[in-house]
């Protein structure tokens, strides 16, 4: 066990030196490893049987076929290596996901000159996914990965392998494209004790239930960052320009999602906060977020929502 771990550590260090992490990697002879696959070993066994038949029957043609297939095996080493060599891999980002969903990481495969057939990408023990890259073309691959905990999901070194053309040999590499994707906490619905956002002393323990219809105050000009849901489409269709409906209640009484005000363990609280961040954003209601290590002032809009979710995802974790 210890030996194995020691070996693993050495192997990782060696890989680190051999294939340093980079967002763009080109596979070459330093980075491609190649060994016979299981099929290749079986093929070797079959060749030995054929050789025995050739020797015992003193049959030159059987010798010939055995040697031909043996040479094919050797020549295939070059072909299999060639199928990976020159392939460029580039990290192409990935959208954040909620815990429990499949994370989707994008990798762009680029061919320099030749075609790359049946290239498999993935993180074992997850099943690999297979792609073909046309000559001088590119292929955008979406690799999915299950999420197990919130925070940055760093899947580690990506395995790239191919057995093309004959399946007798497997060429592979482990590349670190510095791929990462943010995993938000899993949103769990529940009741939320609200606190007012304006640093007021009086904290009304009031349950926020449903979306109350607030007083319509008037229209103002559209500014970037305003939600499209509040656009006054009727005015727009009359040619009065882009106007936004302004609600008095939203400016007057801001909500504060406070971590400290909740019960339960950290993850439960984060999940609940996550649910309410989504819920309030969907309802176009401004809110503030207060976490023990950070405070986000009340705001509204997608950028605010994402910032809050990011805070929730990374709460308590070293970034």
């Amino acid at each position: 066990m210890i030996l194995e771990r020691l070996f693993q550590a050495r192997w990782q260090r060696w890989l680190e030196r051999r294939i340093p992490p980079a967002s763009r990697v080109r596979l070459d002879n330093r980075r491609v490893f190649i060994l016979p696959s299981r099929v290749g070993l079986a093929f070797g066994g079959a060749l030995i049987l054929m050789l025995l038949a050739a020797i015992n029957y003193q049959n030159s043609l059987a010798y010939g076929l055995t040697f031909l297939l043996g040479s094919v095996f050797i020549v295939t080493i070059l072909h299999t290596y060639r199928n990976l060599a020159g392939l460029g891999l580039q990290a192409a980002g990935g959208a954040p996901v909620f815990l429990g969903e499949q994370a989707c990481l994008r990798v762009r495969l680029q061919s320099e000159a030749r075609e790359h057939r049946s290239v498999a990408l993935g993180w074992p023990p997850q099943p690999l996914q297979w792609f073909d890259v046309a000559a001088q073309g590119a292929c955008d691959c979406e690799l999915s990965l299950p999420t197990r905990r919130r925070g940055w999901l760093r899947p580690g070194r990506l395995r790239v392998e191919s057995c093309f053309p004959l399946g007798l040999l497997r060429a592979w590499s482990w590349v670190d494209l510095e791929l990462k994707v943010l995993v938000y906490p899993k949103p769990i619905p529940g009741d939320l004790p609200l606190s007012s956002g304006h640093s007021d002393e009086e904290e009304e323990g009031q349950a926020a239930r449903g979306r109350g219809v607030d007083d319509f105050q008037g229209l103002r000009d559209f500014q970037p960052g305003d939600s499209r849901r509040r656009l006054h489409w009727k005015a727009f269709s009359k040619g009065q320009g882009l106007l936004v409906k302004d609600f008095a209640a939203l400016t007057g009484r801001d909500l504060c999602l406070d971590f400290e005000a909740l019960g339960g363990d950290v993850e439960q609280r984060l999940s609940l906060l996550c649910h309410w961040v989504l819920e309030l954003s969907r309802g176009e209601r401004p809110f503030a977020l207060r976490l023990p290590d950070a405070q986000l002032p009340a705001d509204i809009g997608d950028a605010h929502r994402d910032a809050c979710l990011r805070r929730l995802a990374l709460y308590g974790l070293v970034e």
Binding site: G64, F67, L68, G70, S71, V72, I74, V75, T76, H79, P165, L166
Partner: peptide
């Protein structure tokens, strides 16, 4: 591939 293997064979 067979043609390339021929000399070695």
């Amino acid at each position: 591939i067979m043609l390339q293997a021929l000399p070695l064979m």
